[in-house]
């Protein structure tokens, strides 16, 4: 269900799970646009030479995936704050799931709080955080 106003939101509601594109091509596209095109994000071998398990999906890209999930769920919503903790590396070319769940609704301010997670195939949380999102009633 697409969310258009705060009254559409249910406490505990899970946002539709979103599978992000973590391919090297897409990460390169992102890194170039964001001005973050360092080899640890765009080249597996260079990242391994740094002692990393492979090229990394930039933390800000994981944050961007989470924001995109929110906008897909509530297209007219405005993210007032998104706060993410990068607990463990998210690796390029590996599958992840992007999840969110509503943990608070404030009808007065027309905002919701959402728990955010990026999990790997084993179900381990690699990134977690919260977002405060305004879902204003249409005029």
């Amino acid at each position: 269900m697409t969310i258009n106003q705060i009254s559409d939101v249910e406490f505990g509601e899970e946002l539709p799970v979103f599978t992000p594109d973590t391919s090297l091509d897409n990460v390169r596209r992102f890194a170039t646009a964001a001005g973050w095109a360092g080899p640890r994000f765009t080249d597996h071998e260079a990242a391994r030479a740094e002692g990393l398990p492979g090229a990394l999906v930039p933390g800000i890209m994981s944050q961007g995936f989470l924001a995109a999930m929110i906008h897909r769920w509530a297209p007219e919503s405005r993210i007032e704050k998104v706060d993410t903790v990068f607990r463990a590396p998210v690796i390029v070319d590996q599958p992840y799931t992007i999840s969110g769940v509503v943990t608070d609704i404030d009808e007065e301010t027309e905002t919701v709080e959402i728990d955010l997670t990026v999990n790997n195939e084993a179900g381990e949380t690699r990134v977690f955080g919260t977002a405060t999102v305004r879902i204003a009633t249409p005029a």
């Binding site: 406490f11 943990t103 608070d104 955080g129």
Partner: peptide, 17 residues
């Protein structure tokens, strides 16, 4: 430093879920 949960929200969550 890395906690992102408000205690009232824990309480709401426990009861609602």
């Amino acid at each position: 430093d890395d906690g992102r949960a408000k205690v009232p929200n824990y309480c709401q969550w426990i009861r609602a879920r």
